[in-house]
Amino acid sequence: MSLLLTLFSVLSIALGAFFFLVGTLGLIRLPDLFSRLHALTKTDNLGLGLVILGLLPWLPDPFTALKLVLIWLLVLLAGATGSHLIAKRALRGDGEDLTP
């Protein structure tokens, strides 16, 4: 049982780290600002979610679990809202230093 749980955690955390890596790769490979925002928001969401999922079985109490899930939600909220604001500024051309 414990072995199964360990295996699940390792897989989940490794997959999460993989998604973070792919997001970074996307940041380099994708051609423009908007496409890069896609890579950042979505892979961060999934990557962090999977890392936290892998940690959940090993926490000392449900309170800490709640804390990690809450952190995930806050990161989601900040990521999605932030990317919307960046895209909006870029579209309207009223940001600073956006010349390619």
């Binding site: 998604f19 792919v22 997001g23 790769l25 996307g26 490979r29 994708l30 051609p31 423009d32 908007f34 496409s35 896609h38 890579a39 979505k42 892979t43 969401n45 999934l46 990557g47 979610g49």
Partner: peptide, 21 residues
Amino acid sequence: SFRGGADVARRILRPRMRIKP
């Protein structure tokens, strides 16, 4: 969320990225 992350990862990892923004 899972579909979104997997989708963008698949697109990025293709040798020739399958995007048409």
